[in-house]
Design a protein around this nucleic acid. Structure first.
Length: 429
RNA sequence: GGAGGAAUGGCCGAGUGGUUGAAGGCGGCGGUCUUGAAAACCGCAAGGCUCGCAAGGGUCUCGGGGGUUCGAAUCCCUCUUCCUCCGCCA
């Protein structure tokens, strides 16, 4: 959420920065409604001030044993007026809050302005796509041929966009989870968290999924519970409403969770394989830090995610997203895109963002300085996938496939699986 | 599921209708003292909204929401969370 005062005093600047992110009419609506709200607030506060003065006089007169019935009568009348005007304050506040909560974050000055992914900027690339001396299979053929994933039974169990992992396929998924968590906790300094996979509406609001993106989520019927679409939600909201000591920052957390997404509106996109599922597993990275270090931390966090790809030997490129391609809450986002030989394209496997104080303002996560700096501040929050396991799984299949239909396992995973390859029969060996 | 108890500022903890935005302690910050530090002593310190160029006002906030009252941290209702006991259960 943007600071309402900042928005009020800098509408034109905000309008320019949000050009590809929000309809300008929304900003005008906010300004107009907020002006009404402030007028109503001022009116109520003037009445309250009068009421308080009258009450003080009642107390004084009563102490001296005088008659205060006339003052009480007047105070009653003021009280009635306050009641009346309070309703419009409440209604106008709800309106301005509603508008404000649907306005996306301001892009950082280093972010290219543009309508969509066409304005994204390539930053770097690592690794070279493997030169396979045969026609590489897409993972949905390869995985089914190996017997390590079963889409038909998944459809029977739940429906489309679900997968059942079998044998070496399930173990590979589990090995990836352990490998990623071990690297991030053991070498990158993250604390491992195992959060609930369900969160309430307040938490969903805190990270920006609500109110605008409810249609992307699964809600549990007749409850206030939602299935988490990413561990970003439980991890970021872990400190919701709290005051963090500056000396304790940065705080770096990592978690493995399943992620649940309705994928409403993505009919026909990525329908085959495990690229776009209603449930996928992910290891997430989250940081809380002081405002002056958040962009340095974004570079670090992104490098932490890149390190996983490098250790697995998966070729990837790093892209800086344009203002129009970024998520609602982000101020700056790098996407890591892994090379997929079977599909012949790069596909997003990690998205690393700095949200500045946008989420912290929503979730009320503040910062207490120990020095002379008194002003209360919101912390900056960051997160990134480190990595999406389902997509890492398929990237390994596609990049490490061999002519005989088997898969050579990356060295980093061999210890976790006790094997060097998946044989054409689907066994670990 | 049943029966009780609790929720106050960064933390602990007083406070049952009228200068209580809130005693006291701890922690924090500034200072005195000291070569320096510690101790001791003195002092400063909540947040949101709003009016104002500013200085500075006003208002709201004692888990959330609602109510009673001229006036609520204090009384009533309700929700949430935590604790204790009983029952059930992985």
């Amino acid at each position: 959420m943007l600071d309402r005062g900042y928005l009020r005093h800098n509408v034109d600047e905000v309008r320019g920065r949000l050009v590809h992110r929000v309809d300008g009419g929304v900003l005008d609506e906010f300004i107009a409604t907020d002006a009404q709200r402030r007028a109503a607030v001022t009116e109520v506060q003037t009445l309250q001030s009068r009421r308080n003065r009258l009450s003080a006089r009642v107390a004084a007169v009563r102490r001296s044993g005088g008659d205060f019935s006339e003052i009480v009568r007047e105070a009653r009348a003021v009280h009635a007026q306050i009641r009346e005007r309070e309703d419009s304050v409440r209604s106008l506040s709800d309106q301005t809050d509603g508008i404000l909560s649907r306005i996306p974050n301001l892009p950082h000055s280093s972010v290219p302005l543009g309508p969509d992914e066409s304005a994204n900027e390539p930053v770097s690339a690592w690794g070279t796509p493997p030169a396979l001396p045969f026609e590489p299979k897409p993972h949905w053929d390869l995985g089914v041929d190996l017997g390590v994933v079963d889409f038909e039974r998944a459809a029977k169990l739940a429906g489309s966009r679900f997968a059942v992992y079998v044998g070496a396929g399930a173990k590979l998924e589990r090995a990836l989870m352990n490998f990623m968590l071990d690297v991030h906790t053991g070498e990158h300094g993250y604390t491992e968290i195992l959060p609930p996979f369900i969160a309430n509406s307040r938490s969903m609001f805190g990270t920006g999924q609500l109110p605008k993106f409810a249609h992307d989520l699964f809600k549990l019927e007749s409850t206030d519970y939602w299935l988490v679409p990413t561990a970003e939600v439980p991890l970021t909201n872990l400190y919701g409403g709290e005051m963090l000591a500056a000396d304790d920052l940065p705080i770096s957390l990592t978690a493995f969770t399943p992620c649940f997404r309705s994928e409403a509106g993505s009919y026909g996109r990525d329908v085959r394989g495990v690229i776009r599922q209603h449930q996928f597993q992910k290891v997430e990275l989250v940081k809380f830090c002081a405002p002056d270090s958040s962009y340095a931390e974004l570079e670090r966090l992104t490098a932490d995610a890149e390190e996983i790809l490098r250790r697995l030997g998966l070729p990837y490129r790093k892209v800086l997203l344009s203002s129009g391609d970024m998520g609602f809450s982000a101020a700056k986002t790098y996407d890591l895109e892994v090379w997929l030989p079977g599909l012949g394209e790069y596909k997003e496997i990690s998205s690393c963002s700095n949200f500045e104080d946008f989420q912290a303002r929503r979730a009320r996560i503040r910062l207490r300085h120990s020095g002379r700096r008194r002003r209360t501040e919101y912390v900056h929050t960051l997160n990134g996938s480190g990595l999406a396991i389902g997509r890492t799984w398929l990237a390994i299949l596609e990049n490490c496939q061999e002519a005989d239909g088997g898969v050579v396992l990356p060295e980093a995973l061999r210890g976790y699986l006790g094997a060097e390859r998946i044989t054409p029969a689907g066994d670990l060996a």
